[in-house]
Structure formats: structure tokens, C-alpha cells
């Protein structure tokens, strides 16, 4: 009777039993629903950004001029490339090329790390200049600029947090691949991790022009 709780329909479970029910479609659906919540979490912030840009068009332009668009562009390229490598790792696993799939995921994680390192230098540079909430430089700026940098720190910070979570997610998936729990016929978890990573990429696709280019 103890086995009964195990038999309950839990999808994509990693039981050793042969009769484990798997519902990849349901798992994917759940992942998409989760992505919607992430999208709307950022959506609230984008809405605020839009509203304040509408209210303080000049302040936002002035503030964006202070940003280093080169770092922004480099980070964009890094994330786009990491998205490619995640997509390639799925294709590789489908072709039973386990080593290539793992390699691509390693590459993704390294991209994520480089992105974060860039972000770190960028933030510390700005904080060093006194541009942070309550900081000496920001206090002398106009209201529009204060709001701009407030939103900048919140949005890129939250995005950075998502990069970290995505890296952890991919790390777990890599562990499962190496143990053959995720295989060419059972790779929904990898697909889900990929979906999450692509969402992180998409959010950056919008953050980049909004914070770095519109001056």
C-alpha cells in the first residue's frame, strides 16, 4: 500500500518505476503559465517605466545619456548567444549527443556568469559615482533622473536575480542529464529550463533599448 502515494499521477517524476505517469504537455503548460507570472511581474515595472517616461520624458533622456551603451550592447549579445546555446543543447539532446548538450549548457552558464560580472562592474561604477538611491550625485539630479535610476536598479537587479535562478535551474538540469534522468526521449525538464532562460533573454531585449539607447 505504501506504493500508492507514488503511483499518483505526478507528471515527469523521476521514479524508477516503469509505470510512472508522465505528462510532458502538462508540464510545458505549467511552465508557460509560470512564465506569464514572470512576465507580469516585470510587466508591472514596465508599466511604471512607461508611465514615468511619459511624465518625465526629458529627465529620462538625460539619465539615459549617462549610461554606457557599449556594456549594454555586449551584454545583449552575450544573452542572445546563451539563448542560442540553450536551444542548441535541446537539439543536441534530441540527436542523442549528450556531451554536446552538456557542453552547450556549460557555455550558457558561463555566458550568464560573464553577464553578471559585467553587470557588477557597471553597477559598481555607477555607485562609485554616487548614483544610487539616496546617493550624493543622485540627490542633485532632477526628479525624472531619480526615478529613472530607481527603476534601473530595481529592473536590472530583478533581472540579474532571474539570471542567477536560471543558472541554478540549468545546473540542476545538467546534473540530471549527466545521470541520464533527462534523455533524448524525456527532456521536458531541459525544455522548461530553456523556456525560462529565453524569457530572461526576452526581458533583457526590452531592458536594453529602454535603459541604454533612448537618449
Amino acid at each position: 500500500m505504501t506504493e500508492h502515494s507514488e503511483v499518483m499521477q505526478e507528471e515527469t517524476q523521476i521514479h524508477s518505476g516503469a509505470h510512472v505517469h508522465r505528462d510532458d504537455e502538462g508540464s510545458k503548460m505549467a511552465m508557460w503559465l509560470f512564465l506569464f507570472t514572470e512576465l507580469l511581474l516585470f510587466g508591472g515595472l514596465f508599466l511604471l517605466y512607461g508611465s514615468y517616461r511619459f511624465e518625465y520624458a526629458d529627465g529620462f533622456k538625460a539619465a539615459a545619456a549617462d549610461m554606457n551603451s557599449v556594456i549594454g550592447a555586449v551584454n545583449t549579445l552575450i544573452l542572445l548567444t546563451s539563448s542560442l546555446s540553450v536551444a542548441l543543447s535541446i537539439a543536441a539532446l534530441q540527436r542523442k549527443q549528450k556531451a554536446l548538450a552538456l557542453g552547450m549548457l556549460w557555455f550558457t552558464i558561463i555566458c550568464g556568469l560573464v553577464f553578471l560580472v559585467n553587470k557588477y562592474f557597471e553597477w559598481s561604477h555607477e555607485i562609485g559615482m554616487g548614483i544610487y538611491p539616496g546617493g550624493p550625485a543622485l540627490e542633485n539630479m532632477s526628479n525624472g533622473e531619480i526615478i529613472y535610476f530607481g527603476l534601473y536598479y530595481v529592473m536590472t537587479g530583478l533581472h540579474g536575480l532571474h539570471v542567477i535562478v536560471g543558472m541554478i535551474f540549468i545546473g540542476f538540469v545538467m546534473f540530471f542529464i549527466s545521470r541520464d534522468k533527462i534523455t533524448a526521449t524525456n527532456y521536458q525538464k531541459l525544455e522548461n529550463a530553456g523556456l525560462y532562460w529565453h524569457l530572461v533573454d526576452i526581458i533583457w531585449i526590452f531592458l536594453f533599448p529602454l535603459f541604454y539607447l533612448l537618449h
Binding site: L33, F36, T37, L40, L41, P133, G134, G150, L151, V154
Partner: peptide
């Protein structure tokens, strides 16, 4: 629940950040 709750999540998070750091939003 799925499509509305995240908005309150970020709003309340902003209140917390506003109290902690004074981001001004």
C-alpha cells in the same frame, strides 16, 4: 490568480524597496 497576482507581488516588493532604500518610485 496566475495573471493578476504577480502585479501585486511587484507592487508590494516596491513598497519594501522604497522603505529600505528610498528608490523614489
Amino acid at each position: 490568480q496566475v495573471l493578476a497576482t504577480p502585479i501585486i507581488g511587484i507592487t508590494l516588493a516596491l513598497i519594501i524597496l522604497e522603505r529600505l532604500f528610498g528608490i523614489g518610485v
